[in-house]
Design a protein around this nucleic acid. Structure first.
Length: 648
RNA sequence: GCCCACGUAGCUCAGGCGGCUAGAGUGUCACCUUGGUAAGGUGGAGGUCGGCGGUUCGAGUCCGCUCGUGGGCUCCA
């Protein structure tokens, strides 16, 4: 008799040893049909895993993340099998399940074109219909290495050699195809059902750009064809919110070949939104004790040599030669820190002056590599709500909290707080050359930061090797419509640069001390934030952010004079208004205004003129009936002053 | 920087196995219509098919290079 504790806490007894699959069938018919694998005492296993003793058992289906992983991982193996059949010389690298599906990397002496993917898909469907049983076997380390050597799979050999000595080395076989894999997997290739290949791209072996570029095939898979169709439809829908598409359609920004990559132009409507955000940010920061600075956009190399940028970040900077002497070069600034540090240093500071909080709406330049630019999200010139706080060690935690509070306020005001995730970005101790400062400094700073984050009860994930070169970061991440994650806001604690810049303050004992620096942004960079807002609201911005808040639509040109009066009264109240006085019918004008995503339309005709009112139509709710202009102005001002959010 | 896909009118796109004067919708302009809550009608203008070079009797179409856009890799706000 063995006892299994199920995930709902109930207990189940089985006569003798039994496979996970049989157990699932006995628990329920449905579970037997849908089971993809199991979790036994926290460890994911195949359906064929034999239960021999008491344990916690969780049967996983496609509704469980582990089930999805098993499913997608097997899909990757099927892709690899298909590729090996069509291109026997292809060498296998790795093929994991990832958030958006799965991929498999191959070393081939050509590149996969779209038409190759189609051929591979045909072979995949063959393999699925062959219903090949998938079985697991284990080999001792040396035999495993020899086994893969014999097959000419040099990448697999490298992988095995790098495995920890105590780990069990397992393989999975389906038909003629064998792959090194920890598993678990489905029981048969027939269970993989609906696999779709999405793209072929290049990817460096082990993510190292100095090593060989392999060919990666991305795909996605589901247990039912219908689920796959729905998923593909969802991807299409998401692309309709793409800030690149909406931003260009709504004339928020554009790009021009002759100006260059990563250098978007904000058009009047986009610039208006950024201006609104910037005013809001600067006012809020001032209210919270920040001092505004305005510093140069470029500096001599001397400055960057002190900060470490010249040594560690030179590839990322635009360097401007100055005469014949390379030592006299200027560089456009990639960060504001050294400039604000110099302001700190421009006077003798006392502990009574701290904390000093500097803020600047700062334009930065970063020479991103050419394949990196993306709409407004990755650009070469951007403007960030930058700031640095110089604090004493005692003030650090409180000031850090203050920064997080400011950030939360910003995110709440924009309505995006529930859409972000927190990441604690740490250094990579195995790559010390990328950073300034000692290992001890890094470890203690990270510990300090971790404590603060824990006190703040932020639900963060840790990311090694993601720190800035001068310190660990709290990164606030958001995902774009393609599911790609980017940092929108960041806070960093820096124990290094104060030393490099010889920044000091006099403490209460009259001794010189180094301040701790908090690098932070309150709303991130305006271009990227705008991109995120476009995608968040699909262009239907809240009234306070909408570049055009009201469109006045006269029924005909007989009411032009009244329409002009309405427009001028709104303008006098600083409401952003446009007049559509084209000789078109009202239905047509409404349709256009609606497609332009203007929050309010005011229809004016004979009735309105006689009664001196306006007919209000909202983007969201349609016809709202007539109101006096004063009442409408009051309503819109309420929305603007309170920064009312809307989700449509 | 590397890999994949793409670049045709202001915008969205069709076409393309090399062959008359390159199409549509939408926008824009003119005229008619003066209207009541998501598209009224007619007509006109607008393109050296991203750029440069090559193959050819002939290139928007084929080839090479280049610029740009989108998606990945490395990197990063």
């Amino acid at each position: 008799m063995i006892n299994m504790t199920l995930k709902d806490g109930s207990m189940r007894q089985f006569e003798t040893s039994i496979t996970v699959y049989e157990a699932a069938k006995q628990i329920s018919n449905r579970l037997g049909k849908e089971a993809l694998g199991g979790i036994v005492n926290g460890k994911a296993v195949d359906l064929s895993f034999v239960l021999t003793e008491d344990a916690h058992l969780d049967i996983v289906t496609f509704e469980h993340p582990v089930g999805v992983e098993i499913f997608r991982h097997t899909s990757a193996h099927i892709v690899a099998q298909a590729v090996k059949r069509l291109y026997p010389q292809a060498k296998l690298a790795i093929g994991p399940s990832v958030e958006k599906g799965f991929y498999y990397d191959f070393d081939v002496d050509f590149t996969f074109k779209l038409e190759d993917l189609l051929k591979i898909e045909v072979e995949i469907h063959k393999i699925i219909s062959e219903k090949l049983p998938i079985s697991r076997f284990e080999l001792p380390r040396q035999e495993a290495i020899q086994f893969m050597k014999d097959k000419g799979e040099s990448y697999k050999v490298e992988l095995i050699e790098d495995l920890p000595l105590d780990v069990t080395i397992s393989f999975y076989q389906q038909g003629e195809f064998v792959d090194l894999c920890a598993g678990p997997h489905l029981s048969s290739t027939g269970d993989a059902k609906a696999i779709k290949l999405l793209s072929a791209t290049g990817a460096y072996w082990r993510g190292d750009e100095k090593r060989k570029m392999l060919q990666r095939i991305y795909g996605v898979s589901f247990p039912k064809a219908k689920m796959l169709e729905e998923h593909l439809l969802l991807l299409e829908e998401a692309k309709k919110r793409d800030h690149n598409k909406i931003g260009r359609e709504m004339e928020l920004f554009t790009t021009v070949d002759a100006i260059g990559q990563g250098l978007p132009l904000l058009m009047p409507k986009g610039a208006k939104i950024v201006q609104i955000l910037q005013r809001f940010v600067e006012d809020t920061e001032e209210a919270r004790g920040y001092l505004l600075t305005k510093t140069p956009l470029m500096a001599k190399s001397d400055l960057y040599k002190i900060s470490g940028h010249w040594q560690l970040y030179r590839d990322g900077m635009f360097v401007i030669p100055d005469g014949d002497n390379p030592d006299d070069a200027l560089a456009l600034r990639p960060m504001t820190c050294p400039f604000q540090f110099m302001i700190f240093k421009a006077a003798q500071r006392s502990y009574r002056d701290l904390p000093l909080r500097y803020a600047e709406t700062s334009t930065l330049f970063r020479n991103e590599s050419s394949g990196e630019m993306h709409g407004l999200i990755r650009v070469r010139q951007f403007t960030i709500s930058e700031g640095h706080l110089m604090v004493t060690p005692e003030q650090l935690e409180n000031e850090f909290r203050g920064v997080v509070d400011l950030i939360n306020y910003m995110m709440d005001t924009l309505g995006i707080r529930q859409d972000v995730s927190y990441q604690f970005s740490k250094w990579d101790p195995n790559n010390k050359g990328k950073y300034v400062g000692s290992a001890e400094q890094w470890e203690t700073t990270q510990e300090t930061m971790k404590n603060i984050l824990d006190h703040l009860q932020l639900n963060y994930k840790e990311a090694e090797g993601e720190a800035a070169f001068y310190g660990p970061k709290l990164d606030i991440q958001f995902k774009n419509v393609h599911g790609k994650e980017d940092t929108i806001i960041t806070v960093q604690i820096d124990f290094s640069l104060a030393e490099r810049f010889d920044m000091t303050y006099i403490d209460s004992n009259g001794e010189k001390k180094r301040p701790i620096v908090i690098h932070r942004t309150s709303i991130g960079c305006y271009e990227r934030t705008l991109a995120m807002l476009i995608e968040k609201y699909a262009g239907k911005f809240p009234t306070w952010l909408a570049p055009i808040q009201v469109k006045v639509l006269p029924i005909s040109d007989k009411y032009q004079a009244y329409a002009d009066l309405v427009v001028s009264k709104l303008k006098a109240q600083r409401i952003r208004v446009e007049l559509d006085d084209r000789a078109e019918k009202i239905g047509y004008k409404i349709r256009e205004a609606q497609l332009e995503k203007v929050p309010y339309m005011l229809v004016v005709g004979q009735k309105e003129e006689e009664e001196t009112v306006v007919s209000v139509r909202s983007r969201k709710e349609g016809d709202l009936g007539t109101k006096t202009l004063e009442a409408f102005i009051e309503q819109i001002q309420y929305e603007v002053n309170n920064r009312v959010l809307n989700y449509e």
